[in-house]
Nucleic acid binder design. Structure first.
Length: 483
DNA sequence: TGAAATGTTGGGGCG
DNA sequence: ACGCCCCAACATTTC
């Protein structure tokens, strides 16, 4: 029997580089048992959605391959994390359990329970910093309160630079090779391909640490300098698309931060304006988790309590039309179809589509949040919750409710030629730019030339935006009076 | 990380 | 020449 191992429990840190738990496990000079647990029990209502399950399967393959190249294998188990770790520790007579901290609302108790059980059973337990630049309890206002506003929060973060350097992949890893039961990932049925809704995902994405590193390097080399100007353009390839990689921890925010800072420091290109903005976007992710940590029901309850009485119209037909991308507003439909086809949507379009659901259709923001949770490959409990509250106007540092996006103007401003709409709503692709974002205003002859029959080949607008806006503002007045 | 309504200004046409 | 009106263009306010 080999020496008792250190269990390295992988969660949202599916990488070998910049992984403190792994580095410290190697430093013990004991054999390592790398483990991933598919835990659908602990998160309750927030078990992983469909698109993240597709990603997870790919990412675990990538991690297992990377570990295999070092001479080990990833051990897969399914069940409640505490129960599985107890079982594994028993089966292997483990010396220790090392892992990176998680920041979901259910993680704190779980990690405490693991630490307590380890203490009672004479097993060393070490928890390392998680997937944020700062632990959420360490950033406070001068008065000692958590920040509720993004800008001062981001200033406070910048003031704490420099952040620690990323850690290298440890060399001479020794793996524990005892014979224990391991799940076959195929049995998890993370994605069964029936129906084959994720067929396009693989064309767009390369899950895993190597894919994440490539994405970051390409973004820094080609796009970060123009990020401030072009990041709102869904028709361009101007954003990093790192969100799913960050969600699974295939890359750390420290790695992203330092790569950006190095590009700024080398000074060969005029990169600073865009790069600075990219850092700020990383801090929006940070801010979302900061809010979630201090207000752990952010996923379900409006931060501003008066919104609990908002007169929503919880209409399934409206929700379904939005989900399918059949609203009759091209920029909204393009976004929803991009989401379905690729598991991702450009951030500007997320705001437009979310605003449409909430303010034009008056559907509760939680319904849209749930849809995104199921369909986004980057579905993340922090960013998703905070961002939906932001759009709904009920969040901490949110867009006020009366700030209502006009889907036509937003389309014309951020997809000026209509290239994005043409890509995802091909039945409109022959419409000229002047009407691509408002086909109902096109003269009959123009529609005929483009092969568009409104109500048949493409829907008529499901609501009149002007009237919907008035209705939304009227609804808002009701909760304002009672507040 | 809005948009619409309302207010102000200034150039030009015109009597 | 001058005042008046019209209405872009821009600014401010309101939702």
């Amino acid at each position: 029997m080999s020496e008792s191992p250190v269990i390295v429990w992988f969660t949202h840190d599916l990488r070998l580089a910049d992984n403190a738990a792994l580095v410290k496990a190697v430093e013990t000079c004991r054999p390592i048992l790398p483990v991933y647990i598919l835990d659908d029990e602990t998160p309750g209502d927030w078990a992983m959605g469909g698109a993240t399950r597709w990603w997870l399967e790919q990412s675990l393959h990538a991690l297992d391959t990377a570990i295999a190249e070092k001479g080990g294998r990833l051990c897969l188990r399914r069940g409640g994390s505490l129960d599985v770790l107890k079982a594994l520790a028993g089966e292997t007579a483990a010396h220790a359990i090392y892992f990176s901290r998680n920041h979901a609302p259910w993680s704190g108790k779980l990690e405490q329970d693991i630490a307590s059980w380890c203490r009672e059973n004479g097993i060393e337990c070490k928890r390392f910093a998680g997937y944020l630049l700062h632990d959420p309890e360490n950033i406070r206002t001068g008065a000692g309160d958590p920040y509720k506003v993004y800008t001062p929060f981001s200033k406070a973060c910048f003031a704490t630079e420099p952040f620690r350097e990323p850690r290298a992949v440890p060399d001479n890893m020794q793996f524990w090779l005892g014979g224990i039961a391991k799940d076959d990932i195929a049995d998890w049925k993370l994605y069964d391909g029936k129906p084959d809704w994720a067929s396009q995902f693989a064309e767009r994405w390369t899950p895993g640490e190597a894919g994440a590193r490539d994405k970051l390097e390409r973004f820094i080399a080609e796009a970060v300098g123009d990020y401030k100007d072009d990041r709102d353009r869904p028709d361009l390839f101007a954003t990093s698309r790192l969100s799913p990689h960050l969600h699974f921890g295939e890359i750390s925010p420290h790695q992203c931060w330092h790569a950006t800072r190095h590009a700024m420091a080398d000074g060969r290109r005029n990169v600073d304006r865009g790069a600075e903005h990219f850092l700020k976007e990383l801090l929006w992710r940070e801010f979302s988790y900061h809010l979630l940590h201090h207000w752990p029901d952010l996923m379900s309850e409006p931060f501003r309590p008066e919104f609990a009485d908002f007169p929503w119209s919880d209409d399934d037909d409206a929700l379904n039309a939005w989900q399918r991308g059949d609203t009759g507003y091209p920029i909204v439909d393009a976004g929803m179809r991009e989401l379905w086809a690729t598991g991702w949507m450009h951030n500007r379009v997320r705001m437009i589509a979310a605003s449409f659901l909430i303010k034009d259709l008056l559907v509760p923001w939680q319904r849209g949040e749930a849809w995104f949770w199921d369909t986004l490959v980057d579905a993340d409990i922090g960013s998703n919750s905070a961002s939906w509250q932001w759009v709904a106007g009920c969040g901490a540092d949110a867009a006020p409710y009366f700030r209502i996006f006009n889907p036509v103007l937003q389309g014309e401003k951020f997809d000026p030629d209509g290239a994005y709409v043409r890509r995802w709503v091909p039945e409109l692709k022959r419409l000229p730019p002047a009407f691509i974002h408002k086909p109902w205003e096109a003269p009959a002859l123009v529609l005929k030339d483009a092969g568009v029959v409104l109500g048949k080949t493409y829907p008529k607008p499901m609501v009149d935006h002007g009237k919907a806006r008035d209705a939304a503002l009227a609804a808002y007045q009701k909760i304002r009076k009672s507040a």
